[in-house]
């Protein structure tokens, strides 16, 4: 896709909305940063490329009183759908601009390997960083390797042909997921103890999540109910995260934003991916896959439930 499709699409949508959520290029770092476009002039700065990693749906519940346009990848569209299903966003208040997604690059990982702020260029199947380059499948986000959202479930205006790339096979088989899967239950207990001993209770995971919309009544923090104390230690922090994870059951679309936001690199997706898998096995439900589905924990099926035991 070229910006020749995207910019006119944003301008068109601006005729009916107050603001369009999209991306522009950071002059300093060269990668995409989220941007809000209010006027056609501003929209000239819009871009879409494989560094557009952010899930902009997180802003929708916070913009309750405006009409909002949003540029969405296939997976972002699922967050939008889930927000509508949960009654957090009304369908007639938003306009979705679909884009064909090439898969997004794990910018943080790339910079950790090659130097922070290095210019990233994605061309010819390789990602180039100041003289060095790696095959792009080695540096794509994990979710893109198993992308099942090549076509956004909700689109009002398509910027070009919105069918995304076919996901490449995952490159290495020795990553954290494989190591975690091989651990015994006792090892996992130790693993989480160690991981959560690094948590600083910044709540970035919650803030980055489009489906964490309780805001100031979040049980990760409340005194009443008092699920967890405010102390920063492994036990309290793990409990706080268990609160969040259990609230994500049947709601998480697997966008990976919590993990990306975590400043200390706790692999939160290990738990969320497991939970999503369980939910899909039990209830054949994928969050945000359709506007008609009822969230599985808000309903029951007398005839089928229990047959899983």
């Amino acid at each position: 896709m070229s910006m020749n499709d995207l910019i006119p699409a944003i301008k068109k949508v601006l005729e009916e909305v107050d603001v369009v959520l999209g991306w522009t290029r950071s002059p300093a770092a060269g990668v995409a940063v989220p941007a809000r476009f209010h006027t056609p002039d501003e929209a000239d700065g819009a871009i879409f490329d494989s560094t557009c990693i952010h899930n902009l749906a997180v802003h929708l519940p916070r913009l309750k009183n405006s009409k909002v346009g949003i540029v969405a990848k296939g997976c972002d569209a699922r967050s939008i759908v889930q927000l509508i299903v949960e009654g957090e966003v009304s369908r007639d208040r938003i306009r979705v601009i679909g884009v064909p997604c090439p898969g997004v690059i794990d910018v943080k990982r790339a910079w950790r390997c090659y130097g922070f702020g290095k210019k990233i260029e994605d061309a010819g199947g390789r990602v180039h960083m100041e003289g060095r380059s790696v095959p792009r499948e080695e540096i794509l986000l994990h979710k893109c390797h198993q992308c099942r959202d090549q076509e956004p479930v909700i689109v009002d205006l398509a910027a070009g042909d919105v069918t995304s790339m076919t996901p490449p096979p995952p490159p290495d088989k020795s990553g954290i997921r494989e190591r975690f899967a091989a651990m015994s239950i006792t090892e996992r207990r130790e693993f989480w103890r160690e991981q959560f001993s690094r948590c600083i209770r910044c709540y970035a995971c919650r803030e980055a999540c489009p489906l964490c919309f309780c805001r100031d009544v979040c049980s990760m923090q409340t005194r009443e109910p008092h699920w967890t104390g405010g102390q920063v230690n492994a036990i309290e922090s793990e409990m706080a995260q268990q609160v969040r994870i259990s609230h994500m059951a049947g709601r998480c679309t697997g966008c990976e934003e919590c993990e990306r936001a975590c400043p200390v690199g706790i692999p939160l997706m290990l738990l969320l991916e497991e939970q999503n898998k369980i939910i899909e096995e039990l209830f054949a439900y994928r969050a945000g896959a359709s506007l008609e589905d009822k969230p599985p924990l808000l309903t029951y099926d007398i005839n089928r439930d229990g047959g899983w035991r």
Partner: peptide, 14 residues
């Protein structure tokens, strides 16, 4: 439904 999801989550939680 909730308890079944919880039970299956336990191994991952350690």
């Amino acid at each position: 439904r909730r308890l079944e999801v919880l039970e299956r989550m336990l191994p991952a939680l350690g």
